[in-house]
Design a protein around this nucleic acid. Structure first.
Length: 592
RNA sequence: GGCGCUGUAGCUCAGUUGGUUAGAGCGCCUGCCUGUCACGCAGGAGGUCGUCGGUUCGAGCCCGAUCAGCGUCGCCA
């Protein structure tokens, strides 16, 4: 038997002609010409055509004719150039083929429930049920390989920067605030439960106390909240922490890591440093703390332009101290009136009290505002403030400042979507800095941390005096194309400051001791100043891949109800297992 | 938990105003075919129209309920 080199299905070229090779993979397609039989063999590296000719192997040709999609085969033969005129320019291996002399069928496949080659739309629950087949499809192969490259780039880069990858436990203690936890019952401790980490936050801070100086982890995190297209009950973070950092040092590390990821995984050079915005500026200009900078359409405060307006809604708003904000829809004057009405309805759905629009058409100004309410002077001021030009439309909302910003920000993104300004191949990064330290909890009316309670106050605010809502934090977010990629902060390392934060948040002393006593104790043993960041891997890969659901970049995701339709998780436990765990279930009866 | 959209062949979908035997493309099966590459040609099989109930002489189509999937709001310190 001739010596054969094992080759992948993607590597053979003209230069390999004459070699005896063995390729193994899945049958992508067969073309049976009665005499000649072509078999396309696929593996993750590519597709190679094998040709069976009954004249050089009658039995092999007979078996080849029986091959079906997704059968697993090993084919031996000699690489030869395809006859002139039959090359396939669509395949990297399209200049050659394998003159097959040997064929082993390693495994037969049932007819697949959906086509494997090609990326046609298939019902997602079917894809998840047969995820191992779905993952064979080109789109998913690309995404999973992309993910590998991106994460490898993170490891390489952070390792080169002196970071150590350290694992932290998955079985930890529940912390009552934040998202709901997934819990794990303890057999050895009847009635007690572990919680799965929502993030390695406390452990990475303890690793800084432990003196590891620079830590990272590709960390799995768990949150028992309802899923969205960009959310899963378990997800992956690039978790980073540094001792003795300045905010700029952390920002630099994260920028260089992201740049390395995009270059190594995607071949895209992203510009560093990223644009920096304060939280206040982001809200004022874009109406969002995660602004999409791929397009302009900044918000303008046009309250002054409407001073003394006869338009009641606006005059009353101004009297209340509300803000009137506007942004330009470039070319929007070409819209038919019906579209403005639809936009107004959309704005209300997004939370607006209403939407005013002004269309600066070439043949005159049209508006939803009463004519009498729009003086020439007002129009002049509006155009001056917003930069609206003839041919543009202007959208105006009035509300309490934050509410007006938020709704205008959402509408801005909506209009940009309509205009096709959100190109998935453009990557517009930015930093949002100087977040508030606390926010008002809408439900309880109390204070809650804007980030988490370990975030250090801004320089000058350490005393926590004055209005808590006016305090700034050393908290920074990195944002890409309107999506928050990650959040970070300089942490508190002084136990006294940490206790003060807990007290502002109205945690009782007993509560603090019970929940965070170990952390405060650790801080009392020489905690270095430290800070870091966590980046959402799934979202980053999603944006790299240009998709719209993180399920597309996770090998085995859960569906919207947290279930895995393939292995049918979650599932009930056998009674003896429950007994061993000291558990009794109490399942509410379905209402009829 | 609320709301919206979807559910018809293995897959992707069409199905008119409620009216005879529910269609197409792909896939699958059989046969033919020696240069195809989503090969081609001929033939064939394949349906609980998500489920249950109602209206009607008659329901894939109308009504109600329900289940499932996706999206969205709540939620995500």
């Amino acid at each position: 038997m001739t010596q054969r080199r094992a080759a992948s299905c993607g590597e053979l070229r003209k230069a390999d002609v004459g070699q005896a090779v063995l390729i193994r993979g899945w049958v992508n397609a067969t073309r049976d010409h009665g005499g000649l039989i072509f078999v396309d063999v696929r593996d993750r590296f590519g597709v190679t055509q094998a040709v069976f000719d009954p004249r050089s192997g009658e039995e092999e040709a007979r078996v080849a004719a029986s091959l079906r999609s997704e059968d697993v085969v090993a084919i031996g033969g000699v690489v030869r150039a395809r006859p002139a005129g039959t090359e396939n320019a669509k395949l990297p291996t399209g200049d050659i083929e394998i003159a097959a002399t040997d064929l082993s069928v390693l495994n037969r496949s049932k007819t697949p429930p959906f086509p494997i080659h090609g990326d046609g739309e298939i019902d997602e629950s079917l894809r998840l049920r047969y995820r191992y087949l779905d993952l064979r499809r080109p789109h998913m192969q690309r995404n999973i390989i992309l993910r590998h490259r991106a994460i490898k780039a993170v490891r390489d880069h952070l390792d080169a920067q002196g970071f150590l990858e350290i694992e932290t436990p998955m079985l930890i203690k529940q912390t009552p605030e934040g998202a709901r936890d997934f819990v794990v019952p303890s057999r050895l401790h009847p009635g007690a439960f572990y919680a799965l980490p929502q993030s390695p936050q406390l452990f990475k801070q303890l690793l800084m106390v432990a003196g590891f100086h620079r830590y990272f982890q590709i960390a799995r995190c768990f949150r028992d909240e309802d899923t969205r297209a960009d959310r899963q009950p378990e997800f992956t973070q690039i978790d980073v922490e540094m001792a003795f950092p300045t905010q700029d040092e952390i920002i630099h590390v994260i920028e260089s890591t992201l740049a390395h990821m995009f270059r190594e995984a995607l071949g895209v050079d992203i510009a560093v440093p990223f644009v920096r915005l304060t939280h206040e500026q982001a809200m004022a200009d874009y109406g969002s703390d995660k602004p999409d900078l791929r397009f302009g359409m900044k918000l303008s405060d046009v309250s002054a332009a409407f001073a003394g307006t006869e338009f009641k809604i606006f005059s009353q708003a101004l009297a209340r101290g509300d803000a009137i904000l506007a942004f330009v829809d470039p070319g929007g004057a070409a819209r038919p009136r019906r579209e403005f009405d639809t936009l107004a309805a959309t704005a209300v759905e997004l939370g607006a009290r209403g939407l005013g629009w002004i269309s600066f058409a070439g043949d005159g100004v049209r508006s939803s505002l009463p004519k009498a309410a729009l003086t020439e002077e007002m129009l002049r001021l509006l155009r001056e403030r917003t930069g609206a030009r003839t041919g543009d439309a202007l959208y105006v909302v009035a509300d309490e400042l934050r509410a007006a910003q938020t709704v205008a920000g959402k509408l801005r993104v909506h209009v940009a979507d309509q205009r096709g300004l959100r190109d998935s191949k453009t990557f517009a990064f930015c930093w949002v800095l100087d977040f508030p330290l606390f926010e008002r909890d809408e439900e309880t009316g109390g204070l809650m941390p804007a980030h988490h309670p370990f975030t250090a106050p801004a320089h000058g605010d350490e005393s926590l005096s004055g209005d808590p809502l006016a305090l700034r934090a050393q908290h920074y977010d990195v944002v890409l194309n309107g999506m928050e990629l990650g959040s970070g902060s300089i942490r508190i390392h002084d136990p006294a400051v940490q206790r003060k934060i807990f007290s502002v948040l109205s945690y009782s002393d007993a509560d603090v001791e019970q929940r965070f006593g170990f952390l405060l104790e650790a801080f009392a043993h020489g905690a270095p100043p430290h800070g870091g960041m966590a980046l959402g891997v799934d979202r980053i890969i999603l944006l790299m891949a240009g998709g719209d659901s993180i399920r597309e970049v996770i090998a085995f995701p859960k569906n919207q109800r947290f279930a895995d339709p393939m292995m049918e998780a979650p599932a009930q436990l056998a009674p003896e297992v429950l007994r061993e765990l000291h558990l009794k279930t109490d399942i509410p009866k379905r209402r009829l």
